[in-house]
Design a protein around this nucleic acid. Structure first.
Lengths: 159, 159
DNA sequence: TGCAATCTTGACTGAAAAGTAAAGATTTGA
DNA sequence: TCAAATCTTTACTTTTCAGTCAAGATTGCA
């Protein structure tokens, strides 16, 4: 269970925009530099985010990208869903086997676990907004754990 | 956030062994056939599981694989950890950027989220045993959701 | 108008994951 | 001892994912 590079860096780019402040915009070179990635790569990510409606792009001199909505209203679950090609629907359509269809079509115990895990992750991420990722690692860490303990997240009993 | 083919199919092979019953063993051809995957692929997966100590392999005629421990004692979190190369440690060592090291070394808000998510998933999986995945999809689904609602899992408030 | 800054798009390249194949090693039993 | 059944190991091929590049399109400004 891994987060893909696309998910991670797409999210990072959004956080950069959120850090820039409400209504502020950043250019591709700026984003690339702040995130330490190539301009090409940033370009592709921003294009995805633009297509998905998270950011608004303006061309020409003085152009750049800005958030389409306030960072307080953007949920991590939405972002991840887009950057990950919304996997879970149709998970069973791409099976690894040699047969015409997945041998477990119809009755498959593992499917419950895979779908259930996806629900758990989405649920956890739906409690966090983009704006809550702005700040120092310490702050963000505190916020994230507090949120997960309260609003429908994980109630850790040990450790 | 995706489950890898290795995780999914490794787990499936273990479930096959668990379904076979306590102390029973299955050969590579049997596992491959029941799972609908090639024998080569099953061989690689079983080798990993064997190396990790989940199954015991015996060669020769009348050989095969059997679980090293009762299915009731094998946690999904352990299995996934092995099949996924225990990613999370050293996540920051493989960054995608152009720099000598990840530009966020030292202070990185996203890291909290990535590590936190990993914790949430591991926590959820640590409440489920291999034996609980044996049975019809309906049964397994009920079990999984009941478990996640109780023992430290997700408390869904909506939907 | 024309140039410079900027985003857009699709093709290309390289790397990692997934799956396959084949030869080797071990065990059983005739 | 020999052959058949079985797991083991390494190398190879294919597919998917990540990242790069270059040409194109749009906008602002002089």
């Amino acid at each position: 269970m891994k987060i893909s590079a696309q998910e991670e860096y797409g999210l990072r780019c959004l956080v950069q925009l959120a850090s820039a402040g409400e209504g502020e915009s950043l250019t591709l070179p700026q984003i690339a530099e702040r995130e330490g990635i190539s301009q090409s790569n940033a370009g592709k990510l921003m294009w995805l985010l633009s297509k998905a409606g998270f950011v608004h792009a303006t061309r020409g001199t003085k152009g750049g990208y800005s958030l389409s909505r306030p960072a307080e209203e953007i949920l991590l679950s939405e972002v991840v869903k887009v950057l990950d090609d919304d996997e879970i629907e149709g998970h069973c359509n791409s099976y690894t086997g040699v047969m015409d269809s997945c041998v477990h079509t119809g009755d498959c115990g593992i499917r419950s676990v895979i779908v259930g895990l996806h629900e758990i992750v989405q649920n956890a991420l739906s409690n966090v907004t983009l704006s809550q990722l702005v700040g120092t690692e310490k702050k963000v860490d505190e916020r994230f754990h507090r949120i997960q303990r309260l609003g429908g997240g994980v109630a850790r009993t040990e450790k």
